[in-house]
Every structure is written in structure tokens, then in C-alpha cells.
């Protein structure tokens, strides 16, 4: 782990590629140059003061060292600044592009729905199958755009969450129903267990549903051949705790620290067989944390994974937004 980290620190080429700058502009390289300059300067000043025993020489050499350090420091700051600026522009671009995509996606989805619901008589089974597939792709595209927009908002620090009253138990029941087809197709048994009583929370309904949907569909997708996904809803003091447990492929130990990073997808035999952007967990973690809870996981490769998240139980049931 430590060795890997140190090697990464010294991999200037990789860093330069990641930041989109040249090798000599990478912060690590500049820091090392600065370190070398400092050591050389201390040594130089020591030698100079020993040989000449004159304060002018010491002052001149110290001033030139300060000037040099100032120049290098300035380089580092401007590099970091330009990277931050580029990052901001990228986020803004994603945000604008996603918004623009929403209109054509709405058009496509509504046209498909109109065709399916009002004009489908006379169509052959094959034609209907194709229409359903296109409609399904439209749904997927809609979800992807929402994910990209949420990611951009998280990066900008501008993700605003609605405050809806949610009965988590009902929401999980509904989601399990909608995931049944995927589960059956993958030979996965979905089991739900609840503590007694209500599970009322105040949070963003659409987004908490996205969190649950991502975790449940991930568990199903990464089961492999067949298995079981358990969804356990419990009360822990002032919190509701949801656990999604699967006996799937698990996450290799070496990759566990990177889970939840943007665009990161674990390397496993199923990776290339399933869709995914690597944004689901990143978004889920941010939504849960911004809603006052936390998200974590335990996983053993080839044994399975357990994903947990908590959310505060609402004391007062109050409807703030009705959309």
C-alpha cells in the first residue's frame, strides 16, 4: 500500500497525464526540485560563509535562493490554479451539455410512450419488441444524464436536496418489485426484512430512490451466476440503517480504498458484462452524507459484499415540498 503510494508520487508521467500538464509542471516534480534547491542552497550558504566570512555574500546568496524558491513556488501555484480552472470549466460543460440533452431525451421518451400507448395496434410482435428496446434505451439515457448532472452539481458544491416525507419501507417494497425482473433474469433471490414499525424520514425522494436503486441493482449485477440479495432495514437510535447484502463476486482488497471514487469500477469477471459508469456509488455516498447519514461497505472477494447506509429518522413529519 505505502510502496504503491510512494511509487505513485514519483510517477510524474502518469501525474502529468492525469492533470493534463507537461512533466516538469507536475506539482510533485516541482516540489522535488524545490527540495533539491533548498538543500543545495543551505550547503552553498554554509560553504560561502565559511570561505568568505562576509555578511554581504551570505545575504546575496540567501536572496538568490529566496528568489529561486519564489519562482518555483509561483510555478506550482499557477499549475494548480490552471488545473482547478480547467476542472471548473469541465464541470460547467458537463452541466450545460446534460441540461441541453434533457429536452431531446424527453421528446424521445414521450414519443415512444405515445406510440406504445396509443398507436401500437397493428404492430407486429417484432416491431413492439424493438420499440420497447428503444424506449428502454431512452430511460437509460435519462438516468445517465441525471447522474452526470448530479455529479457536476456535487463537484460544484451546488447539489440542493428536496425535503420530502419518505416511508423508507414502502420505497424499498416498490423498488424490490421493479427490480424483480432483473433479479429473475439473473437467478437472484431478493429477500427483504424489516424491524417492526414505521421508517419515516425527510429527504430527497427521487435521489434516495436512486441510492437504493443503485445499491440493489449493483448487488444483483455482481452476483455472478446465481445467489441471494438481502435488504435489511433496521432502527439504530435516531437512525435508520439499510443493509444490502449479496453473496456475489465481492471487491478485491486492493481496490476497496478506491470504491466510491468518481468513475471507478472494480476489476472483476463481471465488469465487462454489465453497464456502468462508476458514478453510482460516488453519487450515493454524497447524497447520503448530505442528507445527514453515512455510507460504508464490507466486502470479501468471492464471498460477497455488504453495503450499509444510514439516514436520520424524522421526528416531525412535515411536508416541505410537494412535487
Amino acid at each position: 500500500m505505502l510502496k504503491q503510494r510512494i511509487l505513485n508520487e514519483f510517477n510524474f508521467k502518469k501525474q502529468a497525464e492525469e492533470l493534463g500538464v507537461s512533466v516538469w509542471q507536475t506539482p510533485s516534480f516541482l516540489f522535488i526540485v524545490m527540495g533539491v534547491v533548498i538543500v543545495a542552497a543551505i550547503f552553498g550558504v554554509y560553504v560561502a560563509s565559511k570561505h568568505y566570512n562576509s555578511p554581504e555574500i551570505v545575504i546575496i546568496s540567501e536572496s538568490s535562493v529566496v528568489a529561486l524558491l519564489f519562482t518555483i513556488g509561483n510555478f506550482i501555484i499557477s499549475t494548480v490554479e490552471s488545473v482547478a480552472k480547467a476542472n471548473k470549466m469541465k464541470t460547467e460543460f458537463v452541466s450545460i451539455a446534460s441540461h441541453q440533452l434533457k429536452t431531446p431525451i424527453s421528446e424521445m421518451r414521450w414519443e415512444m410512450e405515445l406510440l406504445k400507448s396509443k398507436y401500437s395496434s397493428g404492430l407486429s410482435e417484432k416491431q413492439l419488441e424493438i420499440i420497447n428496446e428503444v424506449a428502454h434505451s431512452g430511460e437509460k439515457m435519462g438516468r445517465l444524464v441525471n447522474d452526470l448532472l448530479d455529479t457536476a452539481r456535487i463537484d460544484q458544491g451546488s447539489l440542493a436536496l428536496a425535503k420530502d416525507n419518505i416511508n423508507l419501507r414502502d420505497m424499498i417494497d416498490e423498488l424490490v418489485q421493479s427490480q424483480k425482473a432483473l433479479a429473475n433474469a439473473s437467478n437472484v433471490e431478493l429477500v427483504v426484512s424489516f424491524d417492526e414499525g414505521d421508517f419515516n424520514i425527510v429527504a430527497d425522494k427521487r435521489r434516495i430512490s436512486v441510492v437504493l436503486d443503485n445499491l440493489i441493482s449493483n448487488a444483483i449485477k455482481y452476483i455472478g451466476k446465481s445467489g441471494m440479495v438481502e435488504i435489511i432495514l433496521e432502527r439504530k437510535d435516531d437512525l435508520v440503517q439499510v443493509c444490502i447484502r449479496d453473496n456475489g463476486v465481492g471487491i478485491p482488497r486492493s481496490e476497496q480504498a478506491r470504491i466510491g471514487e468518481k468513475f471507478f469500477r472494480s476489476n472483476n469477471p463481471i465488469k465487462n458484462k454489465t453497464d456502468g459508469t462508476g458514478l453510482g456509488l460516488y453519487i450515493a455516498k454524497n447524497i447520503v452524507e448530505q442528507s445527514g447519514g453515512s455510507l460504508w461497505f464490507k466486502s470479501i472477494e468471492n464471498v460477497g459484499s455488504e453495503f450499509y447506509f444510514t439516514l436520520p429518522i424524522s421526528k416531525k413529519v412535515k411536508k416541505l415540498l410537494h412535487c
Binding site: T103, R109, W110, L114, R206, C323
Partner: peptide
């Protein structure tokens, strides 16, 4: 609409809209 920020929703409801639906998230049905 497809504007879906909370500030847009709040503004609309404050101005007296009965409800606010985001086109990309709703079916015609």
C-alpha cells in the same frame, strides 16, 4: 419543465403553481 434545481421548484411554488414536474423524469401517463 426541465429546470430541476430546488430553487426553481421553490420559486414556482411560492408564485402559486399547483405542482412542478420535470419532463425528463415523468411519463406522459
Amino acid at each position: 419543465t426541465n429546470l430541476d434545481s430546488i430553487s426553481d421548484v421553490e420559486k414556482a411554488l411560492e408564485l402559486g403553481a399547483t405542482t412542478y414536474l420535470v419532463k425528463a423524469d415523468y411519463k406522459l401517463e
